[in-house]
Design a binder for these strands. Sequence first.
RNA 1: GGCGCUAUGGUGUAGUUGGUUAACACGCCGCCCUCUCAAGGCGGAGACCGCGGGUUCGAGCCCCGCUAGCGCCGCCA
Length: 502
Amino acid sequence: MSIRVRFAPSPTGYLHIGAARAALFNWLYARREGGKFLLRIEDTDVQRSTEASTRSILEGLEWLGLDYDEELVFQSDNFEKHAAAAFRLLEEGAAYRDFTPKAERPDANIKQGIAERARAAAAEGVDHRSNPYRDLPKEESDRRATAGEPFAIRLKVPREGRTRFEDAVYGTQERDYAEIEDLVLLRSDGHPLYNLSVVLDDIEMGITDVIRGQDHLTNTHKQILIYEALGASLPRFAHLPLILAPNKSKLSKRKHGEVVSLTTYRDRGFVPAAFRNFLALLGWSPDSEQEIMTLEELIAKFSLSGIGRANAVFNFSESDPRQWTDAKALWMNAEYIRTMALDELLPMLKAELRAAKLWREEYEEEEREWFRKTVDLIRQRFFTLKDFSEQGRAYFSDDFDFDEAAVKKNLYKEPRLRELLPALAERLGRVEPWTAENVELALRAYSEEAGVKAGLLINASRTMLTGQAVGPSMFEVFEAIGRERTVRRLRSLEPWTALDGQ
RNA sequence: GGCGCUAUGGUGUAGUUGGUUAACACGCCGCCCUCUCAAGGCGGAGACCGCGGGUUCGAGCCCCGCUAGCGCCGCCA
């Protein structure tokens, strides 16, 4: 039978990078094995599910280049089938009605509350089969139900035995039935619960391999119980190590903010292929030592056996804007930006410059060559797509800012530059043809005449022309900026006005 | 509290059936290149392989114990 896997996020927020990685692994596995990658939106929690989240998940997957097969499944559409299955299990005696009134559980510190309850229960010894309604005679159960008394349906977990499965990542997993509570299948309001729904949907969708986060590892035993009660065969399971924050806590939006959202990477100038490549390496490693991999290579090399078991730390600093996300992710993005085919980069740049209102149609017409050459020149030291419209702004617009540190370092330290630069502008205005080589000859000749080091004029020019202290080799910059703009900018008084004010 | 999972330099990971200088990438430091900053080249610091016991001629790899971190334990998903 061919492989069928799925990614099943719940639309209760943005797409978390951990979830995105799970989607990636599923997708790679399906593509590698020639199987199908299905998408199911688990929107059974009506309170928290939003359409905006669904949209954001879809966008995120599309951005990463993860296309899904077959129809998108909304779990809520199967609501009735799931409820019916619970009643079927009830009829078959595999489940029972629990008439215990629903407990009030304030959502706030729910996890803590559960732990406390478990602690208290453990203190006096727990018997998970002690529910008073577990062995209620069928007649009485039916009678009370008919009388309109509310009830939940719980799975009747056998007293003796254990569940067992072979996890593709974590190996053999076993758990005694005694440790598993009779889980609720259907709430008293008639809504099926997660564990029932996933199992039913996975069966209906023909899922052969369930690849998901390790947080589901112990829950898998409960789901196996449901598979068994349903008489269905088990899929293969593969659980993925979790992604942790620098302080080793679980990555969450609440605590860590936008760094955990996939859309942040799109919005902050990541190249999808770069982020995808980075994500693939979080918890998985190929046989070779090669880390930069194309999608095709990723697919060809991917295997469940390459997945590690230890949780991975995702590094970032909340105080240092230069390290806003993992340094390796940033490095990888820079690597992609400077080495990828220019033709693949240009469309992304077009979108970026458009958003920054720096795009001009000429860049695809008469200035096409200039644009390509300039992008190729400046991309060498950029980390994100955003850098093109920020640090690179001066190449596309006359309206750019002067970096304060650059002005101090390259202009203010030598007062004579106020006279030297306009004079240099005068000289450069006569350079013909305008090439890096000719500008260099002219500039060096002038520096000798003026008795100053060429470096002084070069660095000052860099700041005058680009507003920056750093950038590509300056003569290439002169060529890219062009003679007319060069002359004008060298004569500009703007950087000096701040000085006058002091 | 119970159950489970994990544990290799700051981070991500390799470490083949146990075999002797623990590998790669990012980051960090230095040198070269140089008009700046990157990139690139070269070199370096950084891991007693969580701790303690075993088994063995020999253990990061096997066994036991401990510790720590994480996860799960809901009429949430």
